[in-house]
Amino acid sequence: MDAIRFEDVSFSYGSGAFAIRNLNFSVREGEFVAVLGHNGSGKSTLARLCNGLLVADDGKISVFGKSVSEKDNLFEVRKEVGIVFQNPDNQTVASIVEDDIAFGAENIGVPREEIGERISFALKAVGMEGYRNALCARLSGGQKQRVAIAGVLAVRPKVMILDESTAMLDPRGRKEVVDVVTRLNREEGMTVVLITHFMEEALRADRAIVMNKGEIVMRGTPEDIFERHEELQTYNLTLPRIGYICRKLREGGLNVADTLDEEKLAEEIASCGSLRNI
């Protein structure tokens, strides 16, 4: 069954222009999907539509077969789909880490003893066991976002959407967050939708879609999409720097395959011969 399914969905913020237009796409259970797009391409609207924070003007959105537009389903849908938002400071309710993680579990009426277990599990899953009683205000950006992920995990959703959750972080924080969700996907079977404008983050995904002006303009594996770099540029997206280097080296006559891994590229450069000499 599809975890998330959009059928001909349109949405506008009332000012006339469509934020989302005739969107069709689905995410299978257990999949890791990256949603790419420049700022203002409609990718954040997508996240808010998935769990009923926004209501579509047209079309049908369903989560595990349940229609999101029906108010009675909302609570169930939100239990299945957790969202981690962009600003690390604006999504923690409590001052202390464990109290914040408990919030979602309390809301869905989990018995007290089990909440304690869920907190332990969630902290372990995000690699922050030592911070149970820490003050949220004292954590780094990456740590705050991992606490936010733990807060979502405590509700035990099947799907986790990261709505530009790395945009405000430094490179180290970004890596921490992407590592955690990748592991959740691989080891816990969590369905992950990663919304981002950093192309290199999309590499971890099984599948990527590119949005522009509220529509999906490209679909495929991340590698497929990176190969179509000229098309990407027309959507205001740039190739990760390493992809650019691969391409330029090839143009210079060096026989290197596209890769986004530094070690792999170094290996290719070291081992491959130069086309010029053939």
Binding site: R48, N51, L53, F75, R78, K79, G82, I83, F85, Q86, N87, N90, Q91, V93, E98, D99, A102, F103, G104, A105, E106, N107, I108, G109, V110, P111, R112, I115, G116, I119, A148, G151, V152, V155
Partner: peptide, 21 residues
């Protein structure tokens, strides 16, 4: 934003809510 984050974490007021501490 906080309101959205609370909604997304299933906040529905005090009804059927448990307390951890």
């Amino acid at each position: 934003e906080l309101g959205d984050a609370m909604d997304a974490r299933c906040y529905m007021g005090s009804k059927n809510r448990t307390k951890y501490k």
